Simulated assay, not measured.
Amino acid sequence: MLVQIVLFDGFDPLDVVAPFEVLAAGSDAAGGAMAVELVHADGPGEVVSGTRGLTLRATGRLDPDRPGYVVVPGASGPTIGDPDQGVLTIPVLLARFAESAARPLLRAALHNPEVTVAAVCGGSLALAMAGLIEGRHAVTHRLGMDVLDATGVRAVPARVVDDGDLVSAGGVTSGLDLGLHILEREFGPRVANAVETLFEYERRGIVWRAAGRTPVTI
């Protein structure tokens, strides 16, 4: 199984590294059953994050035809500022990514029944800005929930939201929870628990799914 984590200009490093490490460790615990790769819409190359110029290298091109997972991180940078003054805010970075060469590739991934698209933090906002997840259930960082809702996405205030072939996680550190949830989905709770124990990290909250009884307001 392949997991492609998508890099783009201004990405948030922790949104990438947290799921990468969790999934890599999970692959080891599952006997090497999962490959994890950093990719870019334009292919291999150095990609600069939004945090102090930290750079990671994409080793391949995002391929929506390959079965597995495509993980979309959020962006890192200031939350306010004037773009006309050259300030690259998080909304600007996400909007640029949403209109980049990644858009048709992510659309194809979402239409591929053998691919699950997962998003960390602002990654779901990028998908929403690109018009790719209207009507779907998702979560993002708490500062972007209103924006998510305004795009026609059904915003759910949960740590991880599992909407079938679309899985999303909230704030920056939720990339750890997303990775552990993917491991449990694919390999079961024992593998996920083994990685959780190794990392000395406990998952937060209940994974939300559109299932079960509808809560009564109390």
Rank of each mutant, 00 (worst) to 15 (best):
130 A>E: 11
120 V>I: 08
135 G>D: 07
115 V>D: 05
93 L>C: 05
93 L>I: 09
127 L>R: 02
137 H>I: 01
97 F>G: 00
111 H>F: 07
144 G>P: 00
122 G>R: 04
102 A>H: 09
88 L>N: 11
91 P>G: 03
97 F>P: 00
99 E>D: 13
137 H>F: 15
114 E>W: 06
110 L>Q: 10
86 G>V: 03
98 A>S: 14
141 H>I: 07
134 E>L: 07
132 L>Q: 10
139 V>H: 06
108 A>S: 15
107 R>L: 13
143 L>I: 11
135 G>K: 03
109 A>P: 05
94 L>F: 03
143 L>Y: 12
88 L>K: 12
110 L>D: 09
113 P>D: 14
124 S>K: 00
136 R>E: 11
87 V>F: 00
89 T>E: 08
125 L>Q: 13
139 V>F: 02
121 C>W: 03
108 A>D: 15
140 T>K: 01
92 V>Q: 10
103 R>H: 12
116 T>P: 03
136 R>T: 09
101 A>T: 14
142 R>C: 04
111 H>W: 00
88 L>Y: 09
103 R>Q: 14
139 V>R: 03
134 E>G: 15
131 G>T: 13
100 S>T: 08
141 H>Y: 07
118 A>T: 09
137 H>T: 03
110 L>S: 09
88 L>T: 13
86 G>D: 04
120 V>P: 01
137 H>L: 13
111 H>A: 15
127 L>W: 10
135 G>W: 02
143 L>Q: 14
113 P>S: 12
128 A>H: 12
